[in-house]
Simulated assay, not measured.
Amino acid sequence: MIKLFDSLQSSKEKIFCLSFQRTGTTSVGQFFKDFGYRVAGYDAERSTTWSKLRFLGDLEAIFHSSAFKKNQVFEDNPWFEEDFYKILFHRFPNAKFILFTRDANKWFDSMANHSYGKTLGNTFRHVKNYRREIEFYEKYTNQNYYENLHVIDNLLDLNESHREHYTSIYRRRNKEVIDFFNYVSPKSLFVGKLEDPDKWQKLGGFFNLTVPKDYSVHSNKTNK
């Protein structure tokens, strides 16, 4: 385990990774694991159905769950979804937030490759995040959407014809997050670029962690 130095772990403040999926979220989780933090990643989300609870608006069920209470760092679903970051900021005013961005076109390539040309994860939740509701409703008129919120179904195509739509959402949402924290609490948000070779050292500096110059992590690479 890498040596800790005056980290936020001692205060147990919550840390939320707000980066869109396919923007290094799993690597962020591994970074904090390497520094001895308790991290809730994708497995925790699945086991506690946090995304379904957020979608239904039952946020206190998330915040009072044992998995949420025992962990300090949170990445992947549902933290990046829609405007959840605003709720998290007001619910946990001492929390810290992380936003990594990357080239929007490379991000879209990773999205399209992840599930072999299909939408990622649960399609009903996906279309809400990426504004494809009408297309979904027209194609799946009689489906019980809410009954299957926890199901990974990959129902819609995700291909080159969607590039402009997705990349515009990606750029806009990243700007919205940055603008929000610049207004309410600039010191609460770390912003980094996934392409930056010194990103982990800079992230460590934000959390008062001493990160070796040769430290690197790249988890959950896209299989092409």
Rank of each mutant, 00 (worst) to 15 (best):
D6H: 13
S7E: 07
L8G: 06
Q9T: 00
S11N: 11
S11M: 06
K12Q: 11
I15C: 10
F16S: 06
C17K: 01
G24V: 01
F31H: 12
D34I: 03
D34M: 04
V39E: 05
V39Q: 07
G41D: 02
Y42M: 11
D43P: 00
A44L: 07
A44Q: 03
S47H: 14
T48H: 12
W50G: 03
S51M: 14
L53K: 15
L53D: 01
L53R: 06
I62W: 02
F63R: 07
S66H: 15
S66R: 12
K69Q: 15
E75C: 14
E75S: 14
W79Y: 15
E82F: 12
D83W: 07
K86C: 11
L88R: 11
F89W: 14
N94C: 13
K96T: 07
F97W: 14
F97H: 12
I98S: 04
F100M: 13
R102F: 13
R102M: 07
D103V: 05
A104Y: 06
N105A: 09
S110E: 04
Y116Q: 14
Y116W: 07
Y116D: 11
N122R: 03
T123K: 03
F124V: 00
R125G: 14
R125V: 10
R125L: 13
K128V: 10
I134Q: 15
E135K: 03
F136H: 10
F136R: 05
Y137M: 12
Y137G: 08
Y140L: 02
N144F: 02
Y146A: 01
L149V: 06
D153A: 06
N154P: 00
L156M: 08
L156K: 02
D157Y: 03
D157I: 03
L158M: 12
L158P: 05
E160M: 02
S161Y: 04
H162S: 08
H165P: 02
H165G: 05
Y166F: 15
S168F: 01
R171H: 03
K175A: 12
Y183T: 12
Y183A: 07
K187F: 01
L189C: 02
L189P: 10
G192S: 06
E195S: 09
D198I: 00
G204D: 00
V217K: 06
N220R: 09
N220V: 01
K221W: 06
K221G: 01
T222D: 13
K224I: 05
